[in-house]
Write a protein that binds this DNA or RNA. Structure first.
Lengths: 205, 205
DNA sequence: GTCTATATTGTGATAGAC
DNA sequence: GTCTATCACAATATAGAC
């Protein structure tokens, strides 16, 4: 991961592009070699198998957005302070890699048994995260806000619009990709406003 | 679609199950035949090709949740009245078919050029929908609420938690599927509250 | 309608020449 | 490191017997 040859870089670049778009099973080694403009056997030379090449791409995808989520769950900073930063970071990452959400979620949906290992590797500790959430004064069950539901809402608002890109672009923006993109940028200001309102929530019970 | 033989029903049932889980390319005709407990050639007899079998499954998946979304965009009833109904309908559908969001979004992400045709077939008229949104008094740009952003938020909150099921279950609910499910049911009450707040929003400009 | 047999193509992967 | 040649196998699909 530290130093890569030019050939190796071309391989992952093509593999990322095609795996993101067509998925693991939908992409053949030949497809990747063609896109990278090289002989198919070179992929095996560098990565031994399709599984290992896919794994490299998958880990790289995880590495693009898991860290900022993990930081939210674990840092000493309160939700209230960290959330606006995290929203901007996540949305910027999604704008640069709009296909990542579906790619990652599809893999995890097919192989949910991989979650525990991934959680461990990414340095997430669910128990600690729960404790942090429970201890936050501004966001507690006593105030009527379940911290878990809050996290779910936050991630939904940030990530889903990218997973549903074609639907949103064609139905709400009549196929105008520029309009879609500028709406996504707009959400960097919009979502914090919504989040603030949710946190001040005083439910009707 | 009106009348199906028992064999035909078994085929689609198995095809749905496997396509939802592993995707189109990740599922072979043999896999489906095995799951349905029949000879592989029967699939070709009834559906001619894998493409056509997939298409049948895909259309059926669309049919499960597009109608309630289309109704929201077109019915004479105002957003304010229709939204709570729609939230309950969509979430109930997702609870029964939790794999549909990723399945459909993955297909549309791989083949976004299919959107225009699908929109037409499903009877959605983007221009009319825009007009309706613009004319609603309780939800207008003048009030600081972009109707398109509102729809995006609504769909995000309803659908994303199902697309991200494994992540949410293992990180936020420590692997407890029952807890996850009951949280999803809880959202049928939670999301309308959030939506109400968003609609009363008076942004700080 | 359901089976066996077969045609054809594509796949991932390796051995071995250069 | 990069190529050609080749392997074993799996895929979709069809023809034709029953």
């Amino acid at each position: 991961m530290v130093l890569q040859t030019e050939t190796e870089e071309k391989i992952v670049a093509s593999a990322e592009k095609l795996f993101y778009q067509k998925g693991k099973a939908g992409t053949s080694m030949q497809d990747i070699a063609d896109d990278a403009g090289m002989n198919r056997t070179l992929l095996n030379y560098y990565y031994r198998s399709k599984d290992q090449l896919f794994e490299a791409v998958f880990r790289k995808a995880l590495g693009r957005f898991v860290p900022s989520l993990a930081a939210m769950l674990h840092s000493d900073i309160s939700f209230e302070e960290y959330v606006p930063v995290m929203i901007e970071t996540v949305i910027d990452t999604m704008i640069d890699n709009p296909q990542i959400p579906i790619f990652v979620l599809q893999e995890l949906s097919s192989n949910p048994q991989r979650m525990p290992e991934i959680i461990r590797e990414m340095g997430i500790n669910p128990a600690v995260a729960m404790k942090k959430m429970a201890s936050e004064g501004t966001l507690s069950v006593e105030q009527g806000i379940d911290p878990r539901q809050f996290i779910i809402n936050l991630l939904s608002l940030c990530i889903f619009p990218f997973a549903a890109r074609p639907v949103i672009t064609d139905i709400l923006f009549e196929g105008d990709n520029e309009a879609y993109l500028s709406a996504m940028k707009e959400r960097k200001k919009l979502i914090p406003q919504i989040v603030k309102q949710i946190m001040m929530q005083n439910p009707s019970k």
